[in-house]
């Protein structure tokens, strides 16, 4: 049986339709490819991985007995050393293979989409969007990014109600998520990441990520992304406006 990404994601989010969860679990038992797809789509795995991979912060101490005395002859010791090196290399190679065959690491856009996909209308309905709160949030966000977020433009986007600017971080790079409520109160977001001068400019690329329509582009060291409230969201108007304003 074939399962779409949407079906798998619904399963991972606990929203699978009647009977689907059992069908997926049964299919995974015989299908390592499906298993890999499912693992790569899991929205919680990267969040938990990130937190725990920093623990412990330093390599823990282990006290081991000294290795057994090596052979008396010089030739024998040389062989031993070679074997030891061969053994260590094989362990490292295995370890490297393991890491290489893990599900591909997610980029900032996928991570931001996963995070955003967990937002519900309830998440944003109670946000403090008073001018004072937004002033403070934008000041902080703009300082982190080292550029203006053109708040006046964001506040004037038709059909969108500015709710909050939040500073996040992706691999040490500041990532700002600006959240809006659309006319129906659903979450909508605009993200900006400071990527540095080495980042290549890219044209607008649209994709459905984590069930959200998204549009992403890179210009002059910053990455930008719009995230709609669902996979059908039309981003055209916002895209036109923001592409014109965020030119670098």
């Amino acid at each position: 049986m074939k399962f779409s990404d949407e079906t798998l994601l619904a399963y991972l989010e606990g929203n699978a339709e009647e009977g689907q969860a059992e069908a997926i679990e049964a299919a995974v038992a015989d299908d390592p490819t499906l298993e890999s797809r499912l693992m790569a789509l899991d929205p919680l795995a990267p969040v938990v991985h990130r937190v725990f991979s920093a623990v412990p912060s330093e390599a823990p101490k282990v006290e081991l007995p000294e290795p057994q005395p090596s052979l008396p002859s010089a030739a024998g010791a040389g062989v031993m050393r070679l074997l030891a090196v061969a053994a260590s290399v094989s362990v490292i190679a295995v370890s490297a293979t393991f890491w290489a065959t893990r599900p591909a690491e997610l980029g900032w856009a996928q991570q931001a989409a996963i995070y955003q996909s967990l937002y519900t209308p309830d998440t944003i309905s109670d946000m403090d969007d008073s001018p004072a709160a937004l002033d403070a949030q934008f000041a902080k966000a703009e300082a982190q990014l080292g550029r203006s977020l053109n708040r006046d433009v964001l506040e004037d986007l038709p059909g969108l109600d500015l709710k909050r600017a939040q500073v996040l971080s992706f691999k040490g790079k500041p990532l700002v998520q600006v959240v809006f409520a659309d006319a129906e109160g659903r979450p909508f977001a605009f993200c900006v990441i400071k990527q540095g001068d080495a980042a290549q400019n890219t044209e607008v690329a649209q994709a459905v990520l984590s069930g959200l329509a998204t549009a992403k582009w890179t210009q002059d060291g910053y990455g930008y992304m719009l995230l709609g409230g669902d996979d059908q969201a039309d981003l055209t108007n916002e895209l036109d406006t923001l592409r014109g304003v965020f030119t670098g």
Partner: peptide, 28 residues
């Protein structure tokens, strides 16, 4: 003998490489 020594070396190397994750698992 040489096999024995190399497996010991491999285990020592594995301990070096994986001590963090074993500790983390022990914590969990």
């Amino acid at each position: 003998m040489s096999n024995e020594t190399s497996s010991e070396q491999a285990v020592r190397a594995a301990i070096q490489i994986h001590s963090k994750r074993v500790w983390r698992f022990g914590l969990a």
